[in-house]
Design a protein around this nucleic acid. Structure first.
Lengths: 251, 251
DNA sequence: GCAAAAGTGTTGCATCTACACCCATGG
DNA sequence: CCATGGGTGTAGATGCAACACTTTTGC
C-alpha cells in the first residue's frame, strides 16, 4: 500500500558537473556555497528537487541550465546512484538521485539563485584519496578504503562538504576510473573532439601519475578501439599537428 | 525550494531476487502475479514502498523477508539503479529504486499478501536476449540492442511484465555479466561456499554457451584470484572430490 | 636545420587458450 | 580396475610495456 503522502521523502537531484581547464590541465568539479539553511555557508554539489512532471534525467539537465545558464542543446548525463541513508541530511528525510554531467566547455560562473558563491574545484590526486582544491579552499577527499557504512559513522573533517557529498564525489571518481578502459565518457569534458594528448592528460589525473609516464605509442594501441578518427587539428605550437578523435558510439 | 508534499512522487523499492536450482542448473529470478490494481493479474518483480524511517537497502531486505518469509540473518544487496521515466507506470508518478538480492538457498514459495501467485523463472539465454521461463509461462526478454529510450517508446509484447520491469531485468543481467570478471557476486546464489564446477555452471548461462566449452583448467587460472580456498567438499557422485571456495572480500 | 610534438615499428615479457596428462574417489 | 570428474603442466598465440625510430610542423 502506498505510503501516506505526508511521509513521502523529499526527492533531490544532485549533480556532479565535470569540466576541464585546458590551460592549467585540471579536471574540475562544480561546487557551490549555499546562502540559506540548511547548510548555510557550507560548500556542496548543486542540488534541486524533482518535479512531478519530469524524469530525473530531465531534472539533472534543468539543474545545469539553472545553475550555469549554459544553453547547449544536449548534454550527456549518466545516473551515478541513489543515496538513501536515513540520517544523510539532518532534520530532513531526503533521497539524493545523483547524476554526472560532462560539460564540453568551462563556462564562466555566476552565483545563481540560492548560491552565495560558486567555483570550479580541481580534482587533486593524493596517495590514497582525491582532494578538491580551488585557490585557498581545500576539501580533503574520502580515503579510498573507507566504505559507505564507515563514512556515515565517522565524524566529518573540517572543513567538510554538505551532508554526504564527499561520499558522492568519491563514488563518482570511482565510477569514472572504472570506465576508463571501456567507456571513458569523462573525455566529453574535452568537447566532442579531442587529441590523444588531451586524453592522456585526463587519464594521468585519474591514474594518479604524471602524464609523462603514459607512453604515447602504447596508449594509442591499448585505447584506440574506444575512439574513432575525425580529422586533424590545427597545430597551435611547434610540432606535428595531432589527429582528432571522438568517442565511439557517443554523440 | 522543496516540492509541495502533494506533488512528491511515490517511492517504490523493486527487487531482482536471484536464486539457483542445483538440480536443473537454472539461474532463477522471482516474479509474482498481483491480485490487485494496478497491474492486476500481470507478472512482475516484487515491489514495496519506502518507509520514512528506513534506508532503501533496509527496505529491500524487508521486502525479501515479507515476500519469502526467509529469515536469514543477512543477505547481500546491491543497488542496481533508479528508474524515473514519467510514464513508467500509467496513472501514477512513482520512482523505482531497484536492488539485487542473492539468495543462498532456493526457498519454497508461498504467495504472500497481495500476490495471487509467485514463481521462480529460469533465465533462458537466446541469441540476442534472455527469456524468463517457468513451466508453460514465458516472458520474452528485451533485446540486447534496445536502449532505455527505445524501450519506453515501443509497444510491449504479449504477454508482458508489469510496467518497465522487463527493462529492469535486462539492466540487471547486463550488470551481472559485467561483473563476472572482477566481482561475481552472482555466485552468492550458490551459497557462501561453492565448487568451481558450480561456478562454471552459472558462468555458462550468463556467457550464453554450454558448460562443456568452459575449460576447467583455464577457468581456474583466469578467475582464481577472485576466490579463496575453503576446504574440500564431500564427493556426492563418483569422481575426485572438489575443493570449495568462497568469494574474496565478501562475507 | 633544429626543436618539439605526433605517429610507427620492434623486441621481450606476461597472459591466455587449447589440450595432454596425472590424481582421487565410487562402484 | 575402470569410469568419472578434479587438478596440474606445457606449447603456441595473443596482448602489453619499453623504447628506438620516422614524420610533420614552427621558428
Amino acid at each position: 500500500m502506498p505510503q501516506p503522502v505526508s511521509n513521502r521523502p523529499l526527492i533531490s537531484i544532485t549533480n556532479i558537473i565535470w569540466s576541464f581547464d585546458p590551460v592549467t590541465k585540471q579536471l574540475l568539479i562544480l561546487l557551490l556555497q549555499r546562502n540559506h539553511a540548511p547548510f548555510k555557508e557550507t560548500w556542496g554539489l548543486p542540488t534541486t528537487y524533482l518535479r512531478a512532471d519530469e524524469s530525473a534525467d530531465a531534472a539533472a539537465l534543468r539543474l545545469v541550465r539553472e545553475k550555469l545558464g549554459v544553453q547547449l542543446a544536449q548534454f550527456h548525463t549518466e545516473q551515478l546512484g541513489t543515496f538513501t541513508a536515513v540520517a544523510r541530511v539532518p532534520d530532513e528525510r531526503s533521497l539524493a538521485l545523483t547524476y554526472m554531467v560532462y560539460l564540453p566547455v568551462k563556462p564562466q560562473l555566476v552565483p545563481g539563485y540560492g548560491a552565495r558563491d560558486v567555483r570550479w574545484f580541481a580534482v587533486t590526486p593524493r596517495q590514497d584519496r582525491d582532494d578538491l582544491v580551488a585557490g585557498e579552499l581545500t576539501f580533503k577527499g574520502v580515503a579510498d578504503a573507507v566504505s559507505a557504512a564507515e563514512f556515515y559513522q565517522q565524524t566529518p573533517p573540517v572543513p567538510s562538504l554538505t551532508a554526504d557529498h564527499a561520499l558522492i564525489i568519491k563514488t563518482a571518481l570511482q565510477r569514472v576510473r572504472n570506465r576508463l578502459d571501456y567507456a571513458p565518457t569523462i573525455l566529453l569534458v574535452l568537447g566532442s573532439h579531442f587529441t590523444l594528448k588531451q586524453a592522456r592528460e585526463v587519464y594521468a589525473i585519474l591514474w594518479r601519475r604524471p602524464v609523462t609516464t603514459i607512453d604515447n605509442s602504447n596508449f594509442r594501441k591499448t585505447h584506440a578501439h574506444l575512439f574513432v578518427e575525425a580529422g586533424t587539428a590545427q597545430s597551435h605550437s611547434s610540432g606535428r599537428p595531432a589527429k582528432v578523435y571522438r568517442l565511439k558510439s557517443v554523440g
